[in-house]
């Protein structure tokens, strides 16, 4: 039995929930992205930005372990609780299973965890309520709007109580009004969830609006793969971020980083 004094000190040495070191990614002959280092702390929100085709989605898949990196190491320390998963993902398209009702879709990740049927049901309804869709639990996915389906996708990912939540441009397919609303919901949701979030987007304002840190990818040329341009700390309070003085400045700085090629800041 562990006593209190045996517990390692946690406050001054928070253990990263995700560690990536020297990650290179590619398909068949070519390397598309190289040298990505990233440590994600508990409850941290990291946005990943970069031009289309730079390898954001591929990086996210590699961080999640859905594909293996060409070089380097990715580690998501396993948790020890039998009723949660280390990570889960919100995909760009909601990709709900049309043959399952909304609640059964949210239960997908809970199947195989040590939960009874009743517990699974309860654990699915909880995040559905969080995204405001508990009323829709028994509906078929095709009877939901695109924004509602995306919210079910978020509920499905939250249901497993992940330590790392990966989100791949979750709002990019939505209209501006719905996107704005879901962005606000996500800010809200962070207060109620313990998950660290790795959020891919090509929308720099969205990244600065939501994230604690922004990982900027870019610098690829015809004969050199892209890489990490910089990691920007967003030192702005979470409330009403858009209206803060530093907001536009931060967005512009990232835009500048993406726009320039690696050769430009070579000494």
């Amino acid at each position: 039995m562990a006593t209190l004094s045996d517990t390692p000190p946690q406050d001054d040495a928070p253990t990263a929930v995700l560690r990536a070191k020297g990650v290179s990614l590619g398909f068949s002959g070519t390397t598309i992205l190289q040298g990505v280092d990233l440590d994600v702390q508990p409850r941290e929100f990291v946005a990943v930005v970069g031009a289309s085709g730079v390898g954001k989605s591929t990086l996210l898949r590699a961080l999640a372990g859905l594909i293996s990196p060409r070089k380097g190491k990715v580690e998501i320390p396993a948790g020890n609780s039998p009723d949660t998963r280390a990570w889960s993902m919100v995909f760009q398209a909601p990709r709900l299973f049309p043959w399952r009702r909304v609640r059964a879709n949210v239960e997908l990740g809970l199947e195989g965890l040590s939960l009874s049927k009743a517990q699974r049901r309860e654990r699915a309804l909880e995040p559905l309520a969080l995204v405001g869709l508990d009323e829709y639990a028994e509906r078929w996915p095709h009877t939901l709007s695109g924004g509602q389906q995306q919210r079910v996708g978020i509920a499905r990912a939250l249901a497993v109580r992940p330590r790392v939540l990966f989100m791949d441009e979750p709002f990019s397919a939505l209209d501006a009004i719905t996107r704005r609303r879901l962005q606000n919901e996500l800010v809200d949701l962070r207060r109620r969830s313990d998950a660290a979030i790795v959020f891919v987007t090509h929308d720099i304002e969205e990244a600065v609006l939501l994230a604690d840190r922004v990982l900027v990818l870019g610098g690829g040329t015809d004969d050199a793969p892209a890489g990490m341009r910089d990691v920007i700390e967003v030192a702005l309070p979470q409330e009403e971020r858009r209206e803060q003085a530093g907001f536009t400045e931060c967005v512009q700085r990232i835009e500048g980083l993406i726009g320039t090629s690696a050769a430009d800041d070579a000494p």
């Binding site: 999640a64 859905l66 998963r85 889960s88 993902m89 995909f91 398209a93 990709r95 299973f97 997908l108 990740g109 199947e111 195989g112 965890l113 499905r156 497993v160």
Partner: peptide, 22 residues
């Protein structure tokens, strides 16, 4: 194949699980 990726992302790695669920 996107459905399979979803299943794998949500812990349904076993062949029989994906056969029955996807």
């Amino acid at each position: 194949p996107g459905y399979d990726e979803v299943a794998i992302a949500f812990g349904q790695q076993r062949f029989v699980d994906r056969l029955a669920k996807v």
